[in-house]
């Protein structure tokens, strides 16, 4: 009896769904929307994702749940997203560069590519910096390389494959040797630097309080342009190492999602990125303003980023 009524309900809803293509303005999720964050709790992606969800919830009245799905710089989460059925209510939030580098390096083994997703928009750009303790006997990348050559080798902490590749590029360009220590996220990189186990490491925001307190200094910028908060520091490219990353925080859903849902959610994200409370949290997390490239712009960013990553990070 129960089963039968359930089947009837199912059939009925299918008929309704097919006969009335929903419009974006009156599209509403049936049940809670889920934003899956490709990083653990406490990081910048997590913080921005949670506040974004809250602002969207206030604006639209939708129920939005935030989940952390860490692993592989977001690759675990996007892999999972690409493998689940289209349900019009699961959104992935991640960072472009780790995903693109994995696609370049092991694209044949990953079960997704950039066409596996429908893109919703971006929220911010991240700035990645190589930082060191204030007592380190070097102040810039040239100094670091010279010191590594002098010492024979030098320990550097990384937290994701793109940074490993940047350091490998540095090694092959300059002939310096580095011991690359893989850390569990930016907080552990900071711990290794403060504890003196490594001399330098990559930070994507975790180092701000230590810059402020004077315990650390910036050695190099890892983006294409110089760091907004340390414009006097040169980038890797300016120091003669042809590698950079421009990570962008973006949101996507599984390819094939109902266009009305995409349009409605994308609009909600766009509205949220314009809210002052969101701008404040982005300022805290990445020291920049919210940037939304829009659905089409995000796809273009991924396509261009992939082409770029192929040049920079091909094996």
């Amino acid at each position: 009896m129960k089963l039968k009524s359930k089947l009837v309900a199912l059939a009925a809803s299918a008929v309704i769904a097919m006969s009335a293509p929903a419009m974006a303005q009156d599209w509403k999720p049936d049940g809670p929307l889920t934003i899956q964050i490709g990083f653990g709790a406490g990081g910048s992606t997590d913080t921005m994702g949670r506040v974004l969800a809250n602002v969207m919830k206030e604006n639209t009245g939708w129920n939005i749940v935030v989940e952390n799905k860490p692993g592989g710089g977001g690759v675990a989460m996007f892999t999972g997203l690409s493998q689940r059925p289209v349900d019009d209510k699961t959104i992935g939030m991640g960072v472009s560069i780790p995903v693109l580098v994995q696609l370049v390096q092991r694209g044949d083994q990953l079960p997704f590519d950039i066409d596996s997703f429908d893109y919703l928009g971006t929220v911010a750009k991240a700035e990645l910096a190589l930082v060191a303790s204030k007592d380190a006997p070097f102040d810039d990348l040239e100094g670091l390389i010279a010191y590594a050559k002098e010492q024979g080798t030098l320990p550097v902490a990384t937290m994701a494959p793109p940074q490993v590749l940047m350091m490998k590029q540095t090694m092959s360009t300059t002939g310096a040797e580095f011991n690359l220590v893989t850390a569990d996220g930016g907080a552990e990189v900071m711990k290794l630097i403060l504890g003196g186990q490594v001399l330098a490491g990559f930070g994507s925001g975790e180092h701000y309080p230590y810059l402020e307190s004077g315990d650390m200094k910036v050695i190099a910028g890892a983006n294409q342009a110089r760091l907004s908060y340390a414009p006097e520091v040169k980038t890797f490219v300016e120091s003669g190492i042809n590698a950079y990353v421009d990570p962008v925080f973006f949101l996507a859903m599984k390819q094939g999602t109902n266009p009305a849902a995409l349009e409605a959610i994308s609009a909600a994200i766009d509205a949220a990125t314009k809210a002052p409370e969101f701008a404040e949290i982005v300022q805290n997390a990445v020291k920049g303003d919210p940037i939304n490239m829009g659905a089409e712009g995000t796809r273009q960013m991924m396509v261009d980023g992939l082409a770029n990553a192929k040049i920079l990070f091909a094996k």
Binding site: K69, G71, T79
Partner: peptide, 8 residues
């Protein structure tokens, strides 16, 4: 092949 296990 179970990518849900990618994070352990």
């Amino acid at each position: 092949g179970y990518w849900d296990l990618f994070d352990g």
